[in-house]
């Protein structure tokens, strides 16, 4: 009963915040609404007996990624975006896409509703730290390693993207080194 009430409350908050993310033209307000979505999803994960995922969601999304986004918005001092003028047809494409996806979501809802009820195993410890760690470093070791390599690539890529050294200054540095 409590879970059901919580679900509908949090689902409402998540959908409202997601809508506001798209609605606001000011990027900072969008970012704040998105943080609202992340936090309500984290609480939903708690009701789904996945505390580790819930905390990781807060730590990674709300605590790291969105802080970076807010930092960039503040750093670049972005103001409100201009309205679409050249790309008017995007309104129709976006509306059509949204309608199709909503129809799909309700089709899934209907289809899953019609299937026989699956009994939830409330005794399962699938969300505990121990079980996640055990599976991560035995059964799914290869994906974890690949993700590690990908993170390293992302770090190197990000550093290369934002370094200020221009071609000319690099050449000058190389010349200086050969002269020494």
């Amino acid at each position: 009963m409590v879970t059901t009430v919580l679900f509908f409350l949090l689902a409402g908050v998540a959908i409202a915040c997601a809508g506001l993310t798209v609605y606001y033209r000011n990027p900072l307000y969008s970012a704040l609404s998105l943080i609202g979505v992340f936090i309500s999803l984290a609480v939903l994960y708690l009701t789904l007996a996945a505390p580790f995922i819930a905390i990781t969601q807060i730590l990674v999304y709300a605590g790291a990624i969105m802080v970076l986004v807010v930092f960039v918005i503040m750093l670049l001092n972005l103001d409100e975006e201009r309205p679409l003028n050249r790309l008017k047809h995007l309104y129709f494409i976006g509306g059509g896409l949204g309608a199709a996806m909503l129809a799909q979501a309700f089709f899934i809802f209907y289809a899953v509703l019609k299937t026989p009820k699956h009994v939830v195993d409330t005794e399962s410890n699938a969300g505990s730290t121990m079980s996640i760690g055990t599976h991560m470093y035995t059964e799914y070791l290869l994906p974890v390693e690949i993700v590690g390599v990908m993170l390293l690539m992302a770090i190197i890529g990000a550093v290369m993207l934002v370094r200020k050294d221009t071609h000319a200054s690099l050449e000058a540095a190389a010349e200086k080194e050969t002269n020494d």
């Binding site: 679900f7 993310t21 798209v22 976006g94 899953v112």
Partner: peptide
């Protein structure tokens, strides 16, 4: 709440994101 509720919420959020 049944699984279908979570999937529907997931679908709605995905649609909003895509739009």
């Amino acid at each position: 709440p049944g699984l279908e509720n979570y999937l529907a919420l997931s679908g709605i959020l995905f649609a909003i994101g895509a739009v």
